[in-house]
Design a protein around this nucleic acid. Structure first.
Lengths: 194, 194, 194, 194
DNA sequence: CATGAATGAGAGTTCATTCAT
DNA sequence: GATGAATGAACTCTCATTCAT
């Protein structure tokens, strides 16, 4: 596969991403992607075999980029609390955008695709996030910002709240206020007064 | 609509429920339901117009019955903590069953159907659950079982954790242990030592 | 399936037969049959799942009818030689028609479908024909019409010649003369002078 | 066309042959051949326009080589009967191999390609074989090995039996025994006792 | 009320064939 | 000569939905 093909491959994934953002996962057909990319039916099949394959690749790209974005926005002299708040604000922004996210598509995808936990990207991301938050809290506890008996437990709990907020945003709908209240609740439980 | 019709309607809904449990929402076709009910294609259309309509009705039935079940299992002399634990255990049982629940179908349904928050059953259920838990916590605080500064906030937080666990069960998969740890975490935050 | 359905089923098979006669087996698509029958795409699928299934059923019908036709044309006072000649003439007629026969389609079908010899209709027909010819020859030997040392062997040999003529008609092309010469050759080998 | 081109042409034909042996004629696509040869799609079109053309050339090669093989295996002092048996054994070997032969592909090809009998290779081969067998029988008659009234007729008959066995091998399936019985039958009819 | 045959739009997929490089 | 990306037609199969009975 030449350089050009790689470009086109990437173009397809980026275009497909928009389609998934707009329609979720299940409703998207190969035809939808073909039309969005303005290529021929057969052309798409040269690169990908199914919407599942395309979606998996889109997710890979997504997670690579996501890491970068987050690391980039951490200031040099940020405190643990700063970083935690930044992380939660990031989540908030994403879940409130709602109609500009892959979230729904990701959920739909995993509803029907749960290949043994081994290559479940979502699980990896979740576990990785828990680990990062745990480290963060530990650091915060060390320098007296946070108070916390069970850092691992708290980290996990925070992530389940985040997940709860995310799915709620997609189903029952939530407001910025609701998210803020949860953020405050979390910080308070860490002994941070605002 | 005669008595017989009402019976048939109910029969269809109960049978359709099984189909939704098994296949989620989106994948279910009118044909699936027709076949599961062993009625004629046209026959189904006499009662319902679409899978969405059927699913909405199934959810209504579901929520009515759910309330009953929960109230029934509360002992006369139960303490607030008992009831809260009972509620959480109930949730745990449901989310671990996973392949015997409407959960996934419900999520899928709301992914594409969010009629103004007015008649969003899911939201009503969520809000109702928050209210109940709030009352429960208040009662517990009153009789010294719980310690809690912001009962409403805690109730909301608990429900978001529950939602987080539910969606995680459907996507990344979780174990009984994970749920137990969250339950313990919640109780601890209410000052209950186990 | 009601009476009407049975009629339609039969209608489809008869129409499909014409298509197979014209195009062989492999080249025929469900679409071809749909168009020949002037029914809808989905309509055909109500009755049959694939061209293979349709073809199998066409062959069944065919073999039922074939038996009848042959028995009908045997005169009361026919001699063994008469009947043998009649049989061979029947084959000749069929193989010379060529473009009005299922022969080619049958061959194509068996090229890719050889389910264990159990339900190989073609084999059954072949074996049955051998048996009949054997009986015929034995009868002829008994009444002095034929001379033959190994009736079973001769019967088998005749059928292989018939098969050879049939496939040759489809591939290299043969004339009436060629067939006649073979018929004479067969009769001579049975001691019949013409 | 340079030397290199000629080599490549030959390479394609030899590779394509394997594909035809494996899949017959109709099922083979240009894509199949491209992949088997591991050349580019466009590349194949530089040499050949269609599977039909390729197949025709494959058959030409085949028939040239076949002649050589047969002549080579005839011993210096072989009798007419020896040679005839050798020929029939050769046919037997080929038709029992079945899944290692072009037979099926050849039949399929002629089912849809019968360019005026002029350049029908199959017919030429058939006629040539008849001639050879005829000469052979005549030779055998001359030196007293065979008894035969109509050498040409017998030769033709033998070839039709061979054709019958070949097509039967592809459709109803036959055993080595069946072929042996036919060989014995043929020899007996020539007055050869075994 | 109930049936189930019938329709036709639309999704997935594969290939022969072309053409810019 | 050779490549392989690209196209678009053609085929299979499935359903929501209608309608005569």
């Amino acid at each position: 596969m030449g350089e050009k093909s790689i470009q086109k491959r990437k173009f397809i994934l980026e275009t497909a991403r928009k389609v998934f953002v707009e329609k979720g996962f299940k409703k998207v057909t190969m035809k939808d992607i073909v039309e969005a990319c303005d290529i021929s039916r057969g052309g798409l099949y040269l690169y990908f075999d199914s919407t599942s394959q395309i979606f998996t690749e889109v997710m890979k790209l997504e997670s690579e980029e996501a890491d970068d974005v987050f690391s980039d926005s951490i200031a040099e002299d940020a405190t643990a609390a700063d970083i935690l708040v930044l992380f939660l604000q990031e989540q908030k922004k994403e879940l409130l955008r709602k109609k500009d996210t892959l979230t729904q598509a990701v959920y739909e995808f995993y509803f029907e695709n749960q290949p043994g936990k081994k290559d479940n990207i979502l699980k990896k991301q979740f576990d990785a996030a828990v680990k990062i938050i745990e480290k963060l809290i530990e650091a915060g506890v060390d320098n007296g910002e946070f108070y916390c008996e069970d850092c691992a437990g708290t980290a996990r709990n925070i992530m389940f709240v985040v997940e709860g907020l995310k799915i709620s945003a997609q189903t029952i709908g939530i407001t910025a206020d609701t998210v803020d209240r949860e953020i405050v609740y979390i910080l308070k439980s860490l002994g941070v007064e605002i």
